[in-house]
Design a protein around this nucleic acid. Structure first.
Lengths: 238, 238
DNA sequence: CGATTGCTTGATACCTCTCAACCCAGGTGG
DNA sequence: CCACCTGGGTTGAGAGGTATCAAGCAATCG
């Protein structure tokens, strides 16, 4: 099922910073001043990684050895708390850059929500901006700002919204990955959704059932949902 | 009371990017290639603004005309929702940079939580990175990353914590503004705290009372709180 | 001194969590 | 092929935490 998702064209590889750019940043690193590229391990400056579902990309407290770009699949960044509580920070889809950190230790862990491939750019983000590679600095900065805007939006969702509003907003957001399609495919489990929205699995399940009763959505399978009333859904997300 | 807060030395002007830097960025802008400095209004490239308590610095949807640095006082960035609900994104203290945006419209509004002075840097953040002013680019990027980390931390707080944990964590965080002091001064109202933590005023008030009953804090006045058991408070914040 | 704003406290309602049982699909092995 | 097992999902009953509504108090300000 995860692999089904992975193969969907609209959720697969993007263009803006594709393989050519990959090579480009790799070159920039190699031709630049003596950087930290060898300091963290055997990976090449921009290497491709294949992740199985639920495979960990990096853990909390891991040393920061660069940032990442999703090529296919979905990666979740999250934070583990005491007593098995978990907060998912974001789901990263193809084209997204993630893994920016201020310090030299990860504050979040990253795992594949479903089978995924990512590119690892072995720059410390600060170095990226300092690297005199203006194009790269621009892109990194733009994506950092985008992640910031997302995190702020996420905080609003978590702080001031009811379960229905949260789930509706999540579906509306996620549906953006499926333009011109009425049905969306969820790449994540109910538990993932719950941990993203600050709810429990049960509440997510119940809320989806309620949205179905209200004719906003149709649960074709657990992972495939038709948005039968996207406008109404959007207004629920208020 | 707000002015009391404003005059506290440890919450007043900082150093890293003081008046000299202010002038510096102003010069950089003036001596650089024809920038957008005149495109947004009559302010100088880096001007100082004095704000009364609750005065609005910019509103949601306002055009983005630069970013800001807090010199004295506290600025809150927030988001208004339907039905009078409000989510405060962050409280910015002296030294903080805020107001970075991806697009050309503000996603958050900014108001002075108490009397405050800020410096307005009339760069669009993207331009700042592109401006060939490496030092500035570094600082802007570092602060953007810091705001990102904060927003992520905030999301954890909002999503997976109880009222006690939220309030305790807030007090611990805020106490960082008062090093080597047992008492902290709140620059914001209970309503502000509630809107920051995703609670109601009543719950904040009750929770503070409960923390006092548990001998974690002492409410000297409504705005002045002694942390009588900071270690315990920290463990509550888990 | 009255008016306003912010803060506290109480009683009650309601939403979400917790605990529990059950269902379903997929995979495995006899 | 079928029994079994497992992980993910759904549904129900009850408990608990926080919101809501309401009243009263305290400090500030004109």
């Amino acid at each position: 099922m995860a692999s089904t998702f992975r193969r969907l064209p609209h959720i697969a590889a993007e263009d803006e910073m594709g393989p050519s750019d990959t090579a480009r940043y790799g070159d920039a690193e190699r031709s630049g001043p003596a950087g930290p590229q060898g300091a963290y391990g055997p990976r090449t400056p921009a290497s491709v990684l294949h992740l199985a579902a639920n495979e960990e990309l990096f853990g909390e407290q891991a040393p920061v050895d660069g940032f990442f770009k999703v090529v296919t699949g979905v990666v979740r960044t999250c934070r583990a708390l005491s007593l098995g509580r978990r907060q998912i920070d974001a789901f990263h889809v193809p084209g997204d850059l993630f893994g920016f950190e201020m310090g030299d230790r990860r504050m979040l862990s990253a795992e594949a929500a479903c089978a995924a491939t990512v590119i690892c750019y072995k720059y410390h983000p600060h170095k990226a901006v300092a690297a005199n590679d203006e194009d790269m600095a621009q892109q990194v900065f733009a994506h950092a700002l985008r992640n910031l805007a997302r995190a702020q939006e996420h905080a609003v969702l978590l702080g001031r919204r009811t379960a229905i509003e949260k789930v509706a907003a999540f579906l509306v957001d996620w549906a953006a990955n499926f333009p011109a399609s009425e049905t969306v495919l969820l790449a994540m489990t109910r538990q993932d959704i719950a941990d993203y929205l600050g709810l429990t699995v049960e509440t997510v399940s119940r809320t989806l059932a309620e949205l179905q009763r209200g004719a906003f959505i149709e649960l074709n399978t657990a992972r495939e949902i038709a948005l039968t009333n996207p406008t109404g859904l959007r207004s629920l997300a208020s």
